[in-house]
C-alpha cells in the first residue's frame, strides 16, 4: 500500500469514527432523559460533526477523485466506512451511551494529543483544534460515569453493565495494521498500541472513583477499521443517508 492510499484510509478512520458517533448522539435529540443532557449530547455531536468534516474534507483531497466531505459521508456504503466498531453500537439506555462516549473520549484525547505532533501540518492543525473539544467531552463523560456509578443501586448496576458490555469493542482502538504502521513510520500517525497503557490508567482511575469494577481482559472484537462492521452500521447509514440517496444532489 502506498503512502497516499494509507493516509486516505487513516483519515477515513478518524473522520468516520467522529461522524458515526455524532449520528448516534443525534438520535437522542428531543428525547434525552433531561433537557440539559439533551443539549449537551447534541452539542457534543455538533463538535464531532465539525471534526468529521475537517478529516473527511482532507481525505477527499488526498484521494484526489473529486469527492468532498459530503459525498464521502452520504454516498458510501457500510463496507467503505472505516469507523471503529465501538461508535456504531446502539444508544441503549443513557448509561450505555455514556460508557460508549467515555471509552471513546478517553482514547480520542490521547489520539488527538499524539496527532498534534504529526509531520503532516494539516493533520496537526485539525488535531490541535479538535483536542480542545475532546478534552471537554472527556470531562463530561467521566463525570457521568462517576455520578451514575457512585449513585443509586439501579444507576450503579446499569453503569456497570454498560461498562462490561462495551468492553469488547475497546481493543480495536489499540490494534495496529498495515495502515497504522505506514503512518507511524512516516511520523504522520502514531502507534495505536502506545496509547493502551495511558488509556487504561485513565479509565481505571475514573472507574475506581465511580466504585465500578474494570472488566477483565478478554476477547476483543475488531474489523471496523478495515470495513467489517456489525449489523448496526447499515441501519444507521440508512437513516443518515436517506435524503441524499432518495434525492441525489439535494441541497437546502
Amino acid at each position: 500500500m502506498g503512502r497516499q492510499d494509507a493516509l486516505f484510509e487513516y483519515l477515513l478512520r478518524l473522520g468516520d469514527s467522529a461522524l458515526v458517533l455524532a449520528q448516534r448522539l443525534g438520535e437522542w435529540t428531543g428525547k434525552a432523559p433531561i433537557i440539559e443532557e439533551d443539549l449537551a449530547t447534541a452539542n457534543t455531536a455538533l463538535d464531532l460533526i465539525g471534526q468529521a468534516r475537517m478529516w473527511l474534507a482532507y481525505a477527499g483531497e488526498v484521494e484526489g477523485k473529486g469527492r468532498d466531505e459530503d459525498r464521502l459521508a452520504f454516498l458510501r456504503d457500510a463496507s467503505d466506512f472505516r469507523n471503529v466498531l465501538l461508535v456504531e453500537q446502539p444508544n441503549g439506555n443513557f448509561a450505555d451511551t455514556i460508557a460508549r462516549q467515555f471509552y471513546f473520549d478517553a482514547w480520542n484525547v490521547r489520539a488527538l494529543d499524539a496527532l498534534r505532533g504529526s509531520t503532516d501540518a494539516r493533520v496537526a492543525d485539525i488535531a490541535g483544534k479538535s483536542l480542545k473539544e475532546a478534552r471537554y467531552h472527556f470531562e463530561r463523560s467521566a463525570d457521568w460515569v462517576v455520578r451514575l456509578g457512585d449513585g443509586t443501586d439501579e444507576s450503579r448496576a446499569k453503569m456497570q453493565a454498560a461498562i462490561d458490555d462495551l468492553w469488547t469493542y475497546t481493543g480495536e482502538l489499540f490494534a495496529a495494521d498495515e495502515v497504522d504502521r505506514i503512518l507511524a513510520e512516516s511520523g504522520v500517525g502514531f502507534d495505536p498500541g502506545s496509547l493502551h497503557a495511558p488509556w487504561m490508567d485513565a479509565v481505571k482511575q475514573v472507574l475506581d472513583e465511580a466504585t465500578l469494577v474494570a472488566p477483565a481482559a478478554g476477547y476483543m472484537q475488531r474489523g471496523g477499521k478495515q470495513g467489517v462492521h456489525t449489523e448496526n452500521l447499515g441501519y444507521l447509514l440508512a437513516e443518515m443517508q436517506f435524503l441524499q440517496r432518495a434525492y441525489p444532489g439535494g441541497q437546502w
Partner: peptide
C-alpha cells in the same frame, strides 16, 4: 454548574 453545555457549544 447545571450543565456542561448551554444554548450554544
Amino acid at each position: 454548574l447545571t450543565s456542561r453545555f448551554g444554548s450554544t457549544p
